[in-house]
Nucleic acid binder design. Structure first.
Lengths: 251, 251
DNA sequence: GATATATATTGATCTACATCAATCATTGCT
DNA sequence: AGCAATGATTGATGTAGATCAATATATATC
């Protein structure tokens, strides 16, 4: 069960910048140190560089960069993407507090995707080599990494299902529901939230055109499923939205 | 670099069924024990159940099944798929010798996908719990698992790019090239091979209709890029095929 | 070896969504 | 504050590929 602490989804720059222990972190339940003994956690903490701040549009890494760091998001949000040789881009994920960046680089020693902050974002940064050494010493840390990766693979399977088999309405409904769940897991409102990504980004991620995203959002709005005002969204009829996600428009 | 041994892509049932050491296995370079010390490999071998044979259509696991085993394919091929609540299916991968099945189950303790043999397939089976214990004792084993998973994530990113951004011709060209590479890595002909999956399966995997697969294959054939006879394929102009995969039809 | 069944191919038509195009609304900048 | 740049929305039109339909070819069954 998730902790009862409310996690800052958006970074506030004015709050004091003191480093603090992982155990006190709002996203502890979702992050790397979950399941570690106190002593091991202290060890992990010793190699973590805390509270690096990235501003909107800033790059964490890009394809081909040497694999130096794993990033854990504390607050804010990040998009990751891959691209074809001729320059077409596919966004592969939007990442929020408690999620890790850079996992797919482990196999080859190079990042295979690009990661870019969608808004002011605070991360913990772990040197890949140090994490490697540490994982050798702390089996439960490596196990946690395995679990996180396994979860990522599972999530990717879902996205493939979405990209391969679902129509535009289902995709967008599913997208909103997914966001809702992730916010809920962080003790944030599952029915009212702010989108840090543009309509274009959403469309790219879902494999549909920006214009289609707009059209369907207004369709949902007219049907009384949601209310939107620019990037602020309120989910009014989650049940109905789930029905759309599963069975398509039809009805 | 891959070993020089030729790997049996298709299982021959008539060959003697003696168990043998991982180090002598044709897919050693691609599999779990890569990088292990001799002593550790012996340990791993002690928990591996070898040469289980699955026949065409036989199920390895399905979504919701308890996560009991990781499977390593020795020969033959397997398709994995996920499905929507209303029954639509998306094939998430075709797997051949040296590849592992069941990784995405690690996070939740349940398989999230279904795996089914496409033809007579021989696998090594490792009990998940034993592997877990073992990995605690052998850091380089856990590391190898991390690498394999990381590679899987990377591969999934590619598929998402394909599903989201590429047209039907590009998808199919990319598909054939991908197969070619994987066969090459196993010391098999990269230009002439047998497809163990149906046109329908290919289309499902690539997010296009079965009929479209046929049409485009004949288009490629007429353009002199490939030759097909039922499920036997010969790649005639790989360079040109790569051009199609990257830049789309056009030209 | 004959029949049945599954898979593959080709053609005709239809449609969901892309693309092109024109505002409109916000947000950042000087 | 006023203007420019960026993002969002809505409408008109086009098309890639889906779907429907009819064989053809191979594989399995008895």
């Amino acid at each position: 069960m998730p902790g009862s602490k409310v996690i800052p989804l958006r970074s506030s720059l004015d709050q004091p910048c003191e480093p603090f222990a992982c155990a006190q972190c709002g996203v502890y339940q979702l992050c790397l140190p979950l399941g570690l003994q106190q002593a091991d956690m202290t060890l992990l903490e010793s190699v973590v560089k805390r509270k690096e701040i990235y501003k909107r549009g800033q790059l964490f890494f890009k394809p081909g960069d040497r694999f130096d760091f794993i990033y854990a998001i504390r607050s804010g949000s990040v998009k990751t993407s891959v691209c074809t040789p001729d320059g077409r881009v596919q966004i592969t994920g939007f990442h929020i507090a408690g999620e890790l960046l850079g996992l797919s680089a482990l196999a080859s020693g190079q990042y295979s995707s690009e990661a870019r902050a969608l808004e002011t974002t605070s991360v913990c940064r772990v040197e890949a080599e140090r994490l490697d050494e540490l994982a050798q010493q702390i089996p439960s840390l490596q196990y946690q990494m395995l679990k996180i990766m396994s979860g990522q693979i599972r999530q990717d399977e879902e996205l493939m299902l979405l990209l391969g088999r679902r129509n535009a309405e289902e995709r967008l409904a599913e997208y909103l529901i997914g966001l809702s769940r992730r916010f809920a897991a962080r003790n944030y409102s599952p029915t009212q939230f702010h989108l840090s990504m543009s309509r274009g980004d959403i469309g790219n991620y879902l494999g549909i055109a920006e214009e289609t995203v707009c059209r369907i959002l207004t369709r949902f709005q007219n049907a009384g499923l949601i209310a939107t005002k620019r990037r602020d969204v309120r989910l009014i009829d989650l049940r109905q939205l789930e029905a759309v996600a599963r069975l398509g428009a039809a009805a």
